[in-house]
Amino acid sequence: MEAVVRLIDVRKYFPAGAGILGFGRKYARAVDGVSLDVYGGEVLALVGESGSGKSTLGKIVAGLLEPDGGKVLYRGEDLFRILGRRDVRHKIQAVFQNPDSSLNPRLTVFDTLSEAIKARNPKLGNSHLLEEIVKLLKVMGLSEDHLVKYPGELSGGEKQRIAIARALAVEPEILVADEIVSSVDVSVRAHILNLLMDLKEMYKLTMIFITHDMGLVWAVADRIAIMYTGKIVEEGPVEEVFKDPLHPYTKMLLTSSPSAKLVGAYVDEKFKARGEPPSPIDPPKGCKFVTRCPIATKECWTQEPPLKPVSANRKAACLKI
């Protein structure tokens, strides 16, 4: 398989606290040296808790946030160098978590969608434009009646579907889906996920599915990458990681997650949750998970484990493996 997007040692630091005249300024390491390949046509789940850097990484892949270090390659070229080209820009789209923020409240659904279609195809005549919009709506399971509505008149699920439609209007190749169903009620969730999977086939999409919900990962993803304080700690095919996790944090996450339990994932009481993640401003020297790890030893406090291949398709960052 070919990597469509390749992240090489990507870093993003946010200033935290001002310092004095720029001296002694501290940085929160949101993304701290991530290398990751995203293969064409796959659904890659990016999983982590708040502060893990998964959303920041999603924004970087979407080209919304320039990394402070490292490289993002899109089909072998530096993404941030070629992003100015509209055709490249349209190849990577994103949909976000909050339905109330995803649509401009002053625009009707028609305005929102027609803007997206025109961005792709500026010369489109009015009648063709309407045709295209109606086609999009049909795919999304929405009706023409939705066109005259403002976001305030739509339910959360409808808003998310419009946001997805807007992203698809420019015919992307890669879709970053950042917690897109977390704010949507469970009974509506299935519909949106089914839709997303159908669209993935229809549009031959590569998808980066960012979530904290292990049940969703099980339902939709091919591969999973687990992040902890800005780093990837484990990476591999979903079935294998769910049944036989390698990294102690993965084990803790699966043991703690009620939705993972429902799909029969790995549970080990030894890896019951404990402690809190370290501050991203002042993380521990060695392994970032050392403060909560039940199997940590002395060298874990001093030596930072690299993410290294464990088998043909799995990687983990732990000294104990």
Partner: peptide, 25 residues
């Protein structure tokens, strides 16, 4: 049936279509 619908979303089959509850609240 509502509980059944909720549970089928919570206990998804691997890479299968989810049993969805049509409509909204």
């Amino acid at each position: 049936p509502y509980t059944r619908g909720l549970l089928s979303v919570l206990k998804p089959e691997r890479k299968q279509k989810l049993a969805s509850i049509p409509g909204s609240i």
